[in-house]
Amino acid sequence: MEETELIKLAVDGDLDAFNQLVLQHQEIAFNVAYRIVADENAAADATQEAVISMYRKLDTYRGGSFKSWFLRIVTNACYDELRRQRRRPTVPIEPETNEGELIESPEWLEDKSAGPEEVLGASEVEEAIQHCLTGLEQKFRVVITLVDISGEDYETVARIIGTPIGTVKSRLARARQKMQHCLQGFGELLPDHFRHISEEYDE
């Protein structure tokens, strides 16, 4: 069935049609959410929230790209999720001895966050990119994710994040610069096409 037809049925209250639309777009929605919140569980929560929110707001849909409309809701759900994470940061459960006392200077206090080499050793360029992406400010991360990962044009991104198109342009330029700067830390471990970027910074 055509997407426009599904949308019409969903707006009229057809849950099956709505679920069909969800199935069509859930992969991109989840992946955008994952790149923004950088955590699979949080991304799943944000996507589910976005789907529920989309169902509630179906009657406010005024045409245009359904995917963009859905991504806008997903992005807002990601903002909410990130806010929630800031309010309630996750704390690891502290290890105790058999007597119930806290272990002094436990090994888990050691900073084991992966360095560039370890990241590349563990996975590949994807991990390096995700590492740099997570290090970006939220506003830059969202723009570069929507443009480079989701493949949206500037105008759509401006609509999704609710900013002027000029802001999208400048944020994207800054985000790409920062990404390049971050990726230079991975040096020789990067594939060929990334190496010369690092060399430039080293000059």
């Binding site: 969800v22 199935l23 992969e27 699979e40 996507t47 589910q48 529920i52």
Partner: peptide, 13 residues
């Protein structure tokens, strides 16, 4: 070209 992560579950209602 980042690979798409598979969805952990269906998000249908």
């Amino acid at each position: 070209n980042l690979p798409y992560r598979p969805v952990p579950h269906q998000f249908t209602l």
